[in-house]
């Protein structure tokens, strides 16, 4: 099944355009930048690509304080200082204090790895610029030991972004880009199928109905996303809620059971209650 192409896995439904983007990036050895609504499976993509292609996965999660240098290596000057004061013999070799970063790990890997750079937009605005050359040539220079680290095989780099910052043009030009759209009802059914294969068909229909209706409600602060739907269905199955409880057609609508999995803030719950109230009065 592994012919070096990615077509989704038994746990992940990849649409045709996503598969093409992944394969293009992997074939050309260029990074793939993935954007999309939160909860549409951006991070999962890298994990599943690694699984499908049977490659090791290296994850680098970015925070607002992460610097590009940390992905390459860090020189632990404090440890060396301490060792020198304690008279440790290790202190004479500076290489003992070079700590490898995720990018170095990926470059040093024997088999072509999948490198996930998660939420790149969280970092400082200059962060992507600092990685340009490293991602382009897949090599970098260690000043302390005067050695050049070169990738043995170009890793498949998958970068996710939540659009909090705009990424520099020079960086974008080197990437392939894919925007994960919110799945339509059919794709959604496939996704739920993959995650809950034994789900009663009736319950699924009802759950999806409620879910898509909920997304249509105007003014919701945070629309429920795929991952939230999956959580909700998991709960419904665990609690063994009958499909009838999700919706009664005689307009005596109530909040769906376990709605906490779908609506994540007070205002949204409140708004939803109000709409239901109006709906009931009209009905």
């Amino acid at each position: 099944m592994n012919d070096g192409r990615f077509n989704g896995t038994d746990r992940y439904v990849a649409t045709g355009d996503l598969a093409i983007a992944v394969n293009a990036a992997a074939t050309l050895g260029r990074p793939l930048l993935v954007k999309g609504e939160p909860g549409t499976g951006k991070t999962m993509l890298a994990i599943e690509v690694a699984r499908a292609l049977d490659r090791p996965l290296i994850e680098w999660h970015i925070k607002s304080t992460t610097r590009a240098q940390q992905g390459l290596y860090e020189y632990d000057a404090v440890a060396r200082l301490r060792d020198s004061q304690l008279g440790d013999a290790r202190v004479h070799d500076i290489a003992n204090y070079i700590v490898r970063g995720k990018l170095w790990e990926a470059f040093a890997s024997d088999t072509q790895p999948v490198l996930l750079i998660d939420e790149i937009d969280k970092a400082d605005i200059e962060f992507p610029n600092d990685l340009l050359l490293e991602l382009d040539r897949m090599e970098f220079f260690v000043y302390e030991t005067k050695e050049t680290v070169r990738a043995r095989t170009r890793p498949v780099v998958i970068i996710t972004s939540n659009n909090e910052k705009e990424l520099p043009d020079a960086f974008l030009r080197r990437c392939f880009f894919h925007y994960i759209r919110f799945p339509d009802a059919d794709t959604m059914r496939e996704i739920v199928d993959v995650h809950h294969p034994k789900l009663k068909k009736h319950l699924l229909e009802r759950a999806l109905e409620v879910f898509f209706e909920m997304r249509e409600v105007p003014g919701l602060k945070k629309k429920p996303s795929t991952s939230e739907l999956l959580d909700w269905i998991k709960l419904l199955v665990a609690e063994d809620i009958p499909p009838e409880a999700l919706r009664s057609d005689d307009h005596k609508a109530i909040l769906p059971p376990l709605y906490g999995a779908l609506l994540k803030n007070e205002q949204d719950v409140h708004l939803f209650e109000q709409l239901l109230f109006l709906d009931r009065r009209r009905g």
Binding site: D17, A24, L167, C175, H178
Partner: peptide, 9 residues
Amino acid sequence: HLSRAALVK
């Protein structure tokens, strides 16, 4: 799909 992934960022 391919041209979009390659050209539009």
